[in-house]
Amino acid sequence: MLSRIALCLGIVLVTLLTDDVDAADNLDRFEARTYAGAGGEKLNYRLLKPKDYDPNKKYPLVLFMHGAGERGDDNKRQLVHGMNDFASDEVMAKYPAFVVAPQCPNGKKWVEVDWGAAKHTAPEKPSISLQLTFETLDAIAKEFSIDDKRIYVTGLSMGGYGTWDSIERKPDYFAAAAPICGGGDVEQAKKLTKLPIWAFHGDKDTAVKPERSRDMIAAIKAAGGEPKYTEYPGVGHNSWTATYRNPEFYAWLFAQKK
């Protein structure tokens, strides 16, 4: 019996180690970069390029916005959640695309609002980090061959708020959005009726109330939109793992086009 238990534990350990190696290999595919704004501000970001990039072709671009726990200046931590999935052999082969993962500095937010509030009003101007992100996307579009009809945004937790804020500020810029366990300004939902949106949340989330996603979806529908919404039963704050590992998510996202 003990030998069987030891064998099982060994298999689990090998599996975990293999997953870690695979994750490291995939994340190494992201190039470390820094954008410098005109005012001297800087934004660290990682860039995943399509395999066998051909400048004569146009490629979709995905903006990924990380959560609060991945803030910093190491230009690495923002890849912890979801990015290993985007950089997998399967996804890269099936959906050649650029993936941009900026890192929000410590003490900053993608959108400067209270995450615990039942609702919020969007600030008049984007946060410094979000503004630098928009500028970074413009710079990448000048450097590489980007399909401006297939620019997508997704993010989790703090990045879910950032995703909602981004599309409320630039509803005509993005071709689709997938906010995960975040919240937006419901008063601006009318701007989003024509934008393909698939939102996700766990119904047991205590960090960001599921009502934040529910309210946004309800407001968009009330304004005439048809957003998709998935609420995971029995799931807490981590509603991103199931989302980014779901093949249907990628099929839906990359099928969207302006």
Rank of each mutant, 00 (worst) to 15 (best):
P55W: 05
S129V: 02
A219H: 11
Q188N: 09
L27W: 12
K57F: 05
P233C: 10
G155M: 12
I217F: 11
L9R: 04
E135I: 10
M83F: 04
G183L: 13
R245C: 05
T34P: 10
A222D: 15
R150W: 00
A38C: 05
K42R: 13
R29M: 11
I146C: 10
H66K: 00
V100C: 14
F30I: 01
P196L: 11
E231R: 01
L13F: 01
A242T: 10
V21K: 13
T121W: 09
P227K: 12
N246T: 06
T193E: 03
L253F: 09
D148K: 14
K49C: 07
A219L: 12
A117M: 08
S157N: 09
T18N: 11
D28V: 05
V186M: 04
I140G: 12
A36F: 09
A38Y: 15
G202E: 01
K108A: 13
P123E: 08
L17S: 14
Q103K: 13
E143I: 06
P105A: 01
F174V: 03
R169P: 06
L195C: 06
K194C: 08
P123M: 07
L2F: 03
A23T: 15
A122D: 00
D22W: 00
M158A: 12
K209E: 02
A189M: 06
P126T: 04
V14F: 12
K257I: 01
I140V: 12
G162M: 09
D73Q: 14
T243Y: 02
R214V: 03
F249C: 07
A218W: 13
I217N: 08
D172K: 10
I140K: 04
D147A: 03
H81R: 10
D185K: 15
K258S: 12
L48Y: 03
L130A: 12
M92P: 09
T15A: 15
T34K: 12
L13E: 04
L27E: 03
A199Y: 15
R33S: 01
K108Q: 01
A242H: 00
E31A: 14
M216P: 08
D20N: 04
G155I: 01
K125V: 07
G160Y: 05
Y161D: 00
R4I: 09
K190I: 09
A222H: 11
W115L: 03
A32S: 11
G107Y: 10
W240T: 07
D165H: 02
E168T: 02
A36Y: 02
G155P: 08
E226R: 05
E211T: 15
K228W: 07
N75K: 13
T154Y: 11
E143R: 15
K109A: 08
P50L: 00
N75A: 07
A93P: 00
D54Y: 00
Q131P: 01
T121C: 04
R150V: 05
D148T: 14
G234T: 13
N44Y: 03
